[in-house]
Design a protein around this nucleic acid. Structure first.
Lengths: 134, 134
DNA sequence: CTTGACTCTATAGCATACTTTAGGGTTTAG
DNA sequence: CTAAACCCTAAAGTATGCTATAGAGTCAAG
């Protein structure tokens, strides 16, 4: 699979794919005899993961760490992996709970704010958050 | 409340506070007779919201939009607010569901990966995501 | 056999979100 | 009254994550 196909499959710009390679987010692909990059199908799921992780606020470096989770004799012990995944799980739980707060505030605005003729209560995200009792 | 106190209260750098002001994320505070900024307590909750929204991947511009939600005679109609909050709610639901997928993959690694002596199955985030059937 | 679409490397530029620097005034404790 | 700790503006610099440009080779169709 050449870079153009990978790009249209994943919706990630060709330049960005080369950039990700330079940052070691995706492994260096084989090359065709003419020097063109020749990607394996596995790369697609890596890139889809990168897109999703970026969406929810992980940096490229954090994503690299997530992709590097592995237990190998010479690199990472079980203990390290357990510890790292726990830290990341805590982070993710925190993110989910913050998103839920923002969600309930927005829901409140969406549902009640425009009930009457310009009823002004809970019309700002901050007041909707403050009054949230869930 | 002077800028230093606001900074230590919120954990946001003084320079960053002035930057947020310049980007109109927080409103311009009153000034003391000596020209020092004099913040009201309201600013704290705005800044806490900014921190949380940043954490979950909103840009400063998106955060500004969220903070600007208001139904006012001359600016935003109910319809606009309804539409905008719906779009943001969809985005947030998407983020939550992506976070949950990553969470369940990490959980799987955390729980099963180190069960035996370097059992190698599901030890990468991608294989844990692929095998996820929830 | 050439033209247009594709690929390559290397480098420069850009948007976002800070962060630091320079140069200066203000306040407060000793 | 001075030194440390605080505040001010304006402008330059930095890190991250792309995005565009230049200059060149490759390939497939007509």
């Amino acid at each position: 699979m050449k870079i153009g196909e990978l790009s249209s499959t994943t919706g990630i710009d060709i330049q960005t794919l080369r950039y990700y390679e330079s940052q070691n987010l995706i492994s260096k692909p084989k090359r065709l005899s003419n020097g063109y990059r020749d990607y394996s199908d596995d790369t697609i799921s890596t890139l889809q993961f990168i897109k999703k992780a970026k969406l929810v606020g992980f940096t490229l470096n954090e994503i690299k760490e997530l992709l590097e989770i592995q237990v190998t004799k010479d690199k990472h012990t079980c203990h390290e992996v357990k510890e790292f995944t726990q830290v990341k799980l805590d982070e993710i739980n925190h993110k989910i709970s913050e998103l839920k707060k923002i969600k309930s505030a927005l829901s409140k605005i969406h549902q009640t704010c425009c009930g009457g003729f310009e009823s002004a209560e809970n019309c700002s995200i901050l007041s909707a958050l403050e009054n949230s009792d869930d």
